[in-house]
């Protein structure tokens, strides 16, 4: 099959690749770019492990034809830690046991990352709704909800500290 030359914007960087039109974004991320943080749990959109953020919205990369997403900003789990420093949400997961086997975690974190972008202090119901397409077999979701609370509290404390710094 003929490959197409595509230009994908992933985690703020442009990647020029030759890709067959029948390859999913998940395949291209994992195989061509070796961004293996995004996981394949079912390959048929039933589990959420392959969730990435496309133009600010969580989507399942196992469903997307890579060549169709050249005009989009794609964000994967690898983008969330900056210079080796975890984001608040990731720290919440580590501290509260939100990740056990870790296989659903990247997708779960990407879904929650978009939630926190739009909702600074989500209720537990909102958290559960946001991850209702991401199956976790380990945690029963309790510790994931705690991880989000942990992150929200940490972000708020940081904001307060920031304000105090400005006032001082």
């Amino acid at each position: 099959m003929r490959k197409e030359l595509v230009d994908l914007s992933i985690n703020g960087r442009r990647h020029e690749l030759a890709v067959e039109p029948n390859r999913t974004l998940l395949d291209v991320l994992r195989e061509d770019l070796r961004l293996t943080g995004t996981k394949c749990g079912c390959d048929d959109s039933s589990c959420g492990a392959c969730t990435v953020v496309v133009d600010g919205q969580p989507m399942l990369s196992c469903l997307l034809l890579a060549v169709s997403y050249q005009d989009s900003q794609i964000q994967t789990i690898e983008s969330l830690a900056t210079q080796g420093e975890l984001g608040a949400l990731q720290r919440g997961f580590v501290q509260e046991g939100g990740s056990q086997c870790g296989f659903c975690t990247p997708g779960m974190v990407m879904s929650l990352h978009t939630l926190l972008e739009s909702t600074a202090d989500p209720t537990e119901e909102e958290v559960r709704a946001a991850i209702s397409g991401n199956i976790c077999r380990c945690t029963g979701y309790m510790q994931i909800c705690r991880a989000v609370r942990h992150a929200v509290a940490e972000i708020r404390e940081e904001e307060i500290r920031e304000k105090e710094r400005l006032h001082a």
Binding site: S45, G48, P58, L60, L63, S111, S132, G133
Partner: peptide, 9 residues
């Protein structure tokens, strides 16, 4: 419909 990650698509 389905779940949030599918409704975006």
């Amino acid at each position: 419909i389905a779940s949030p990650v599918l409704r975006t698509t």
